[in-house]
Write a protein that binds this DNA or RNA. Sequence first.
DNA 1: TGTTAGCACTCGTCAGGTTAGAGTGCTAAC
DNA 2: GTTAGCACTCTAACCTGACGAGTGCTAACA
Lengths: 353, 353
Amino acid sequence: MELDARKLEILFAIIENYQETGEPVGSRTISKLDRLNLSPATIRNEMSDLEEMGLIVQPHTSAGRIPTDKGYRLYVDRMLADQAKKAEEPRDLPALPMQDLLTRRIDRVEEMLLKMAQILAANTNYTTMVTGPHSRKSKLKFLQLSPMDKGRILAVVVLSGDIVKNNILTLDEEVGSDELMELNFILNKRLTGLSLEEINLSVISGLKNEAGDHVEVVSKVLDAVAETFAKEDSYPVYTSGAPNIFRYPELTGGDRASELISTLEEKKTLGSAIGSLTSPAGSRQDIQVYIGDEVPVESMKDCSVVTATYSLGDGVQGKIGIIGPKRMNYQKVVDTLQETMSHLDGIFLQTEE
Amino acid sequence: MELDARKLEILFAIIENYQETGEPVGSRTISKLDRLNLSPATIRNEMSDLEEMGLIVQPHTSAGRIPTDKGYRLYVDRMLADQAKKAEEPRDLPALPMQDLLTRRIDRVEEMLLKMAQILAANTNYTTMVTGPHSRKSKLKFLQLSPMDKGRILAVVVLSGDIVKNNILTLDEEVGSDELMELNFILNKRLTGLSLEEINLSVISGLKNEAGDHVEVVSKVLDAVAETFAKEDSYPVYTSGAPNIFRYPELTGGDRASELISTLEEKKTLGSAIGSLTSPAGSRQDIQVYIGDEVPVESMKDCSVVTATYSLGDGVQGKIGIIGPKRMNYQKVVDTLQETMSHLDGIFLQTEE
DNA sequence: TGTTAGCACTCGTCAGGTTAGAGTGCTAAC
DNA sequence: GTTAGCACTCTAACCTGACGAGTGCTAACA
């Protein structure tokens, strides 16, 4: 069977109507549309064909049609292709209230990401998740040891991409202020600019030689550094708008709501799931759309997820995901994500200059 | 009407049965209990009296009884009083898996608190919330300026209670490494040990005099310090076990689940609400029980909340709250919180030594 | 006087039946 | 190829009656 232009138009009309109402769409509803001036009977014939092609289904005999995953997939692919073509055209979305993000007082990228997740959730009425910035090839920018109390020092570790982590180290030996500065100097000289892999045994033994008496401090600092790198690998995850799932009855029936909320609370699972996502079907830019079963998280098989990869330069990057029902407004979500990306780029460039 | 021992026993039997089943309790159920060998008819008479006293109600004419807020309040007060008396007795609860918390690698108190919230939620099957450590009279312990890139420095601010915050400052002027160290020294000399109130105009102008050319740096650092104090006031809040509310149908009917989850996600509202709680009825130790309407959060009027105040010394303290249905197992929750508190004390003492 | 057995009564739940309406597929005519 | 008409199907909503849990009241009992 052939999928001609009219069938496509009808399919898309069904999808868009279903997106708005959440109810199965009948032939009468479609026939009322002006652009394809057709009687319900004709629509019914076409619908029957579309069903045969696996693009729509009836929940039960005397009901209207709803799109299948395959139907959505067709719709989304077409949409993304269209968008790629006319990417130049100005689009007039209501501007996101992202101004706040531009404030100079971004002390932690993480805070900004969380805020971004909140803005996205509020604007789309879906649930958002954002993985913290992350890099396979991040390097040690510098570290800073400061005396705190008797027997305790504060070690601040800074990685490329401005990932900062504080470690309070408890020492058995006493280290004087001057000695600490000396150590600080040595450690930075030896370690600055190295990645985790590059801090190998020879570097370490060289360091320990040079450190003289203060082997304990050095090894604890090294532990802290290793842990910072490791933590960086563990994808911190921020979510927002979890309660939005209650807007969509198809996501809250049975235990679904509970399972979804649980998944969102288990940030770790979520983080590695979203982190493992890679472009399946070659799609536009960094934006990926996963529909129903394509989502690699069991409890989200009734959802669709749209992800985008943001990049803060230096190879530091992370993912933003928007989770909604399969009938989510893909167009709006993709547009919104795209706008968010350009904002992020703007912020990044500004910081960089 | 008088509340004799037998009435009390029946009331408590009703409460405990209702806690287990979540179903209204009938007279037959109670009469089956061995300890008060009574016929259903007698129980009915007593129940009728209890209802007149406002301690129990019937959801509808031909149903069993469920406790009222007043009934729970009586039960809880009695329980807390009992517990105070026999506080010495060893209690054999299944030990909480708190060992993890004892690990030395507590780089941030916050992480430990989150983990604690998770353990509590998993063990009680209720929802937990924990406010971050917080102090009205916290002081600046020290600060540390480090050069980062061209035009940017990292300012680490440490408050009493080991509250550490990083601030990346973007400067218009260029500051050399030596000058930065000098500034570092001056700032620490002038500011260390002061609380927010004590950093007044005269301190600031003195500082600016001494700083010479680098007024910009000083004022930006002061902003960062002020913000750290302010942030400290804003109660970070961790929650865990939100999905547990789905275990209790009385909390998930209608829009209740959605509202509860929303409230939990709005950490800020939650923080100030839980922060504002003060001991209403004088109760045992630091543990407070709020039942139904006593909870100062609109969406939690169908819940009970048990809170405990933890203290990390130096006046630094925070609150733990356990949120569950009104029929929650108060005994278990109070015991568990008490055990957690002693664990925390243990950790704190160990860190201090 | 407190306790208990018996009984009529109330009310919510559940299964079964009915109805109205939405939507379809098919057929025949245009 | 399109459309009108019609019989058919299925769900949701509503009603109904039977059932059972639980009560309150009364009268008898220890």
